[in-house]
Write a protein that binds this DNA or RNA. Structure first.
Length: 208
DNA sequence: TCGTCGATAGTCT
DNA sequence: GACTATCGACGAG
């Protein structure tokens, strides 16, 4: 994978990443997976769901850096999620890695994800994917297109068919069909597509 | 097998 | 002080 391959519009680059490999090399071993589901987040202002929407805040600064870098953020106080920065430097667009199929190092991935009962659950969901790969805060800003990096992105065979639909887990701009997945892949996350936003605890309506 | 609910802390207003 | 690009446990059928 070269940085030039990531320069196009984010909603064009995102589906092109399906079928690509994400590889992590650690002292304890290597894990590689094929991407089966991604989401596009644009930094150009028309996407209020993006972390880049409010400009280069300290957290989102990496999104405005050069393409091919890894943007890692902490979610819900519990999980880490990983994005690939795409587009020209300064634009602030990124692709969220939502799901994949582990093809190398399944045993190591299982040891990192003891809750996964079957293979397809190892990287089904963005936080699970980062766990299976062993990606964490130390990998913020990692250069995915540098072959000496501990986390790398490789070009792979494109899937036979790609589906598109609304993004998951957000409450803004849910009409944009910027979630892309490999059609009929068993490892695609299944979290309430088109879903109703989950309400927090407490009275929903006016009754006290 | 499916639907519902709580945990938890960094980030921004 | 409110919110969040989620996960896994648990109960009912």
């Amino acid at each position: 994978m070269r940085a030039e391959d990531l320069l196009g519009p984010v909603d064009v680059v995102a589906p092109s990443l399906l079928g690509c490999w994400v590889v992590t090399d650690r002292p304890e071993g290597r894990v590689a997976l094929r991407l089966t589901e991604v989401e596009a987040y644009s930094g150009e202002g028309q996407d209020p769901a993006s972390h880049a929407h409010r400009g280069p805040t300290p957290r989102a600064a990496i999104m405005f850096g050069p393409p091919g870098r890894l943007y890692v953020y902490f979610s819900y106080g519990v999980h880490w999620c990983a994005n690939v920065v795409v587009g020209p430097e300064g634009r602030g667009s990124a692709v969220l890695l939502r799901a994949g199929e582990v093809v190398v190092g399944e045993e190591l991935a299982r040891s990192r994800r003891p809750a996964a009962r079957v293979a397809r659950d190892l990287a089904r969901g963005p936080a699970r994917l980062t766990q299976a790969l062993g990606i964490g805060p130390d990998d913020r800003g990692a250069d995915l297109v540098n072959r000496h990096s501990g986390v790398r992105l490789h070009r792979g065979a494109a899937p036979a068919a790609v589906s598109a639909g609304p993004r998951v887990g957000i409450s803004l701009a849910t009409d944009l069909p910027w979630r892309f997945w490999e059609s009929e892949a068993p490892s695609v996350s299944v979290f309430r597509p088109g879903g109703k936003p989950r309400r927090r605890a407490g009275g929903q309506d006016g009754s006290p």
